[in-house]
């Protein structure tokens, strides 16, 4: 590997000092401190603690904007050697791996609850004695969202998948179709970029953005449906907890991914990227495929099984 790299070593590139990192760190600190103060005051019914969070957020947004602008500018000036570009590729790859592990924690929680802890609470299995002592009347019905203790309201219904024949009237099915399609469309856009076909690139990237937004609208409709019609909320015990945490963090990542796609669309319309050099686009595409794969896991393990 090292031998192949020999050509890339001619000009070692080290960016000179930058004000951005320390400002970004400061902004992150203020933002999260503000968020904590806000949450704590909201719990006691207080108000007016949002300001610090907003200030921090603005600092973070400005710092990130200028940071990305600087990197793009450097690349346009041809200052990034092949080696620097490879570092960005490694960076994005490992960042996505860290995101995978973040979701792994929530999937792990779901599996542990569903296949070990909840059956035990229902009195089954090796540690079923727990349930027999604590809540002898509790029987587990995951798809009905039952809870051991009555202080936790049981929802009227959950969003578990109906039989296959009824999927055409099942919103998460459409969500799946939308997101899977968007993974194909971004691939078509990527291919167009590599062919140098700019109008095709803009068209398919635009379609991908539209699909991303459509997914988010559908997901919001589903949440409204859950809260209003089904009585399924964050406060209805473990089904609601795992459902909203998993789909919520996924939705947050889709929001981020859609935002990234919009930025890429704007950059494409401005004429950024070349056939050979478009890692910003590629990284966004990777990220988009990643949220797609997470959704497949969600659809299978949260909705279907």
């Amino acid at each position: 590997m090292a031998q192949q790299e020999a050509g890339g070593h001619e000009a070692y590139y080290v960016p000179s000092e930058s004000k951005l990192p320390v400002w970004l760190a400061f902004g992150l600190g203020v933002m999260l401190y503000g968020l904590g103060a806000w949450m704590n005051s909201a719990q006691t019914g207080g108000h007016g603690k949002e300001l610090l969070f907003v200030v921090g957020f603005v600092v973070v947004a400005i710092a990130l904007y200028r940071w990305f602008a600087a990197v793009i500018e450097e690349n346009h000036r041809g200052m990034n050697s092949a080696q620097v570009k490879r570092s960005y590729v490694w960076g994005m790859g490992w960042f996505i791996f860290s995101e995978v592990m973040f979701f792994a924690a929530f999937f792990g929680a779901l599996f542990y609850i569903r296949f070990l802890a909840l059956p035990w609470l229902g009195g089954e299995g090796e540690k079923g004695i727990t349930g027999q002592y604590l809540w002898p009347d509790f029987t587990v019905d995951w798809n009905a969202g039952t809870n051991p203790h009555p202080q936790w309201a049981t929802p009227d219904a959950t969003l578990a998948a109906p039989p296959l024949t009824q999927w055409l009237a099942y919103l998460p099915f459409y969500n799946t179709v939308v997101l899977l399609t968007s993974s194909v469309t971004i691939h078509v856009a990527h291919t167009a970029l590599k062919e140098g076909n700019r109008s095709k690139l803009n068209l398919w990237l635009g379609i991908t953005v539209a699909l991303g937004i459509l997914f988010l609208i559908l997901q919001m409709a589903e949440y409204v449906h859950a809260y209003r019609d089904l009585g399924l909320t964050l406060n209805t015990g473990i089904y609601g907890s795992t459902f909203f945490l998993l789909t919520g963090f996924h939705g947050f990542h889709v929001t981020l991914g859609t935002f990234m796609l919009i930025v890429m669309l704007a950059r494409c319309l401005k004429g950024h990227f070349t056939k050979e050099d478009h890692f910003g686009f590629e990284a966004t595409a990777w990220y988009w495929h990643f949220v797609d794969v997470v959704w497949l896991g969600l659809f299978l393990f949260v909705y279907v099984f």
């Binding site: 973040f102 929530f106 051991p148 907890s241």
Partner: peptide, 27 residues
């Protein structure tokens, strides 16, 4: 990231009424 997930679940149990770590709610 797994630690981040764990403390995030704590945060939701504390502030948003989830029951990840509360057996009465099935956690």
């Amino acid at each position: 990231p797994v630690l981040a997930g764990a403390v995030t679940m704590m945060l939701f149990d504390i502030h948003f009424g989830t029951s990840c770590f509360d057996a009465a709610g099935g956690g």
